[in-house]
Amino acid sequence: MDYTKTLDLLKAHFPQGLLHQSLYHSELRITFDSRFFTEMMQFLYDEPSLGYTFLTDIVGIDYPKRNPRFELTYILFNMNEARRLYVKLPVAEGQYIPSVTGIWKAANWMEREVFDLFGIPFINHPDLRRILTWDSFEGHALRKDYPLQGRDFEKRFDPDTIVIE
């Protein structure tokens, strides 16, 4: 797939925003600088010649040994030309990430899921709550240091400890 236009336009508009780029299986992955993240995503959405109007998914990955620890992958999609773009964003623990719910409504639940399972908070999110685990859940289940059986595997279930909102 041809990504020259995407790269050229991004480099022309955000000379400092593009940290890294690579091709794998002829699909482009680019790493963004978090300082310019919102503007660059808005640009990818708005620019008619690029047409990344569809947000397929947001994937969080935890690399406990890396610094920064987390990596978010936004899968953008140009539906007319059937072209996917993978935007990567390194995230440190506790770092706030600007929400893209203003651009794609689908990001609402995707970001909630990342928040729930990885503990990455988003700024300007309309409704940042846990989504898959319950509200009184402790820890973030998909972090690598969270045990597979859960922290309270041995503990008996006690209905009184459940907080009902």
Binding site: T56, D57, V59, G60, I61, I75, K105, A106, W109, M110
Partner: peptide, 24 residues
């Protein structure tokens, strides 16, 4: 979305569920 790490186990498997977004 599958991330490998050179071993026989996936490092990360993310499932893009269509229904998740329909429900949202």
């Amino acid at each position: 979305y599958l991330v490998g790490d050179g071993t026989a186990q996936p490092y990360r498997l993310k499932i893009r569920s269509p229904c998740f977004l329909l429900t949202s």
